[in-house]
């Protein structure tokens, strides 16, 4: 272990601001890319399901007798 205490670890020998800024940016950008990819997958699947249901409803409506 290179650091005597947790606060020494945070200070990074005086370079804390720069080091943690780099860490924060990397985590944030990689994290949001991952989340965006997962959310996108959900959206695609929902859209496929919705489209399928719409077609099913249209088919059912065609079979129905005209009651008007």
């Amino acid at each position: 272990m290179q650091f005597d205490s947790f606060s020494a670890f945070l200070a990074m020998g005086g370079y804390g601001f720069y080091v943690w800024l780099a860490v924060a940016f990397s985590l944030l950008s990689l994290g949001s890319l991952t989340v965006a990819t997962i959310v996108k997958r959900r959206q695609i699947i929902d859209e496929i399901k919705n489209k399928h249901q719409r077609i099913e409803r249209m088919r059912a409506a065609e079979k129905m007798e005209n009651t008007l």
Binding site: F9, M12, G13, Y15, A22, V23, S26
Partner: peptide, 24 residues
């Protein structure tokens, strides 16, 4: 890289950014 690697003799602990910078 961030906890156990020794600090650089010239750059001190700022060199640890290398562990994000070079792979990226």
């Amino acid at each position: 890289g961030f906890v156990f690697a020794p600090a650089d003799y010239q750059q001190g602990d700022s060199f640890r950014i290398i562990y994000l910078h070079v792979p990226a």
